[in-house]
Nucleic acid binder design. Structure first.
Lengths: 346, 346
DNA sequence: CTGTTAGCGCATTCAC
DNA sequence: GTGAATGCGCTAACAG
């Protein structure tokens, strides 16, 4: 390992060694104006020799252009999985295309004090919010701030908020119609813990209500259970559901760990999927859906699109604070993995 | 929503409004020298009126003190779960105590090009690496750089690397001794996918070898399977193991999703835990261990300690580049959740 | 094609 | 107790 030089080389060091002026070095770097091949060559040699690394934060200070944004990814009860990574990577890729770095910030949604520190320290030029609540304290706080931000997800009153979100109002009907077309008339919904619903978590609230509305229209009965996000809770939930409502022919899931338990319990009871019970699962990634036995048919948002568009929205707002508020809804995508079939005859 | 002021207020604006000099405002903020109550009062009023927010990145530039570090958390095949969050939160808490913000960076371990961009853009003052490989290209690259970094985990040749790591050499013996004391002489090891092992992932490599060595000493036979990280793979693995080696009385796991499958398959076969088969699981979080039916006895690293110490190490290196290289090993912790018992009589 | 100059927002040394 | 001056590393006019 080479011994560490005492301090990092600066543009001035490079300029001196190359025998040119400071700004020439800058321009050689950015290519913002023509440089003769010869001086460019000298500059590059000097940079290499000094191990010169431009200091992006100083550049950002001087140019007043955005260089660093954060994605607020509150890793709450459920953690981060590969499906979330689709968002994250898409957003980050989009940022890098624009020469902006994106880092993740993982504090709890409710930790407004930490958010305040992040913002008031002026460490980032913009923020993307995820896991929006219907009433979201972060949004309230950030609107009192000059920091540009957009959301993946939305609040109840979101007129003033730029966001992209999955069109959850279409999720429920998509599931109901699919199952109803297959002849199912009595189904179970294994949803998320009641705290999550009560805290006003948009996806669940919107999906549940669109599902119930459409079920009513199609004459379908829905028995809902709010299960904790673990395997055991899923087993217990489905055991009880099937005991109390033997007419159930399909389970709609919105809770990945619990649905593992549901599948376990069905297998333990000797019920086959999809011959005896059909399964549809909201919002999980292909990886999660393929992981279980059997694989699950899913209805979800289009992977990276949300992240990509969100970053584009943020960049627009950072570049031009007067750019219009945007609301974008991404339609759901259903992937059939064979876990649904015609309803068992009653 | 209030209309947005044209630009953010600066220290100069505050100084002008308060009728004091720029530096006085700085000192009022930092408290680095005595300020009369009266001027402090005026300054505070001015700050409030202007909605002044200090600009941390400019401050960092001027003071040459670190203000932003990144935690490289490669979210690979397995994602991030709550157990990882212990590290993340502990590190981040420690950073904030020192007035430093920590953000996460989630690119793939192998994406050195992206790492190079992160570093050469000079966006962060330091870096914590996670998920170290035995030969880790990131370490190689970063040592050619002036950027301070430390690791949670270690490489094969880690003399020059400051790290904290779990003492995996103690994991294997802890599991072997525990089971051997209970009379188990033939056990299964459901480990991670062979690519992971071949890529030289330290925890697995070290744990496996310490386990095998100790098993030999204690006269224990270990049948190892490298299962993919999903439920189905775990089911298949244990089914085959028990068929080929009916003498197996315990399963040692190092693969959370696969072990869910193992438990499912044992239940499906009517084998009870721990009466028929004992279970010990390496490296999963309490949350994961409690989630399954039955809960699993675990041997893991002490949650937040790794993150906390890693950040402390990094801060030391950033503050004083000449500080000594440190190697710290954290002893394993076993939590008995009742999934192990005396070996079934053969 | 290249150099000079004046900042970006702040910390800090040196004065008073 | 307070102010003025200098510089962190870089960008971006303004000058040739």
């Amino acid at each position: 390992m080479s011994s560490q030089p005492p301090r990092r080389a600066t543009r001035a060091d490079v300029a001196r060694l190359a025998g040119v002026s400071d700004s020439t070095v800058s321009y050689a770097l950015t290519g913002d104006r023509p440089i003769s091949d010869e001086t460019r060559e000298r500059i590059e040699r000097a940079m290499a020799e000094l191990g010169y690394v431009p200091h992006a934060r100083a550049a950002a200070l001087a140019s007043k252009k955005p260089s660093l944004v954060a994605l607020h990814f509150p890793v709450g009860e459920r953690g981060i999985d590969i499906s979330d990574l689709n968002y994250v990577n898409a957003a980050s890729d989009r940022a890098e295309e624009e020469g902006i770095q994106m880092l993740m910030w993982t504090h709890d949604v409710t930790d407004i004090e930490a958010l305040r520190r992040l913002v008031t320290q002026g460490l980032v030029d913009g923020l993307i919010l995820m896991e929006l609540r219907q009433d979201d304290a972060r949004v309230e706080y950030l609107t009192t701030t000059r920091l540009p931000f957009v959301a993946i997800g939305r609040t109840r009153e979101s007129e003033e908020l730029s966001y992209i979100d999955a069109d959850f109002d279409a999720w429920g009907p998509m599931a109901v119609n699919h199952l109803s077309d297959l002849g199912h008339v009595e189904v179970a919904l294994v949803s998320q813990p009641s705290e999550v619903v009560e805290s006003g978590y948009g996806p669940v609230v919107l999906t549940e209500s669109s599902l119930n509305a459409q079920a009513k229209r199609r004459g379908m009965t829905v028995h809902q259970v709010n299960a904790r996000a673990n395997i055991r809770a899923g087993r217990e939930a489905v055991e009880q559901l099937l005991r109390q409502h033997p007419g159930i022919t399909a389970v709609i899931g919105f809770n990945a760990p619990a649905m593992i338990g549901v599948l376990e319990e069905l297998a333990a009871q000797g019920r086959r999927v999809p011959e005896d019970v059909s399964i549809v699962h909201f919002g999980i990634s292909p990886e999660q859906a393929e992981m279980t036995v059997p694989a699950q048919t899913t209805i979800s948002a289009p992977g990276g699109e949300l992240g990509d568009v969100a970053m584009a929205l943020l960049i627009e707002r950072m570049t031009n604070p007067d750019s219009p508020i945007r609301h974008i809804l991404a339609p759901p995508v259903m992937v059939d993995r064979g876990s649904t079939g015609p309803a068992r005859r009653r």
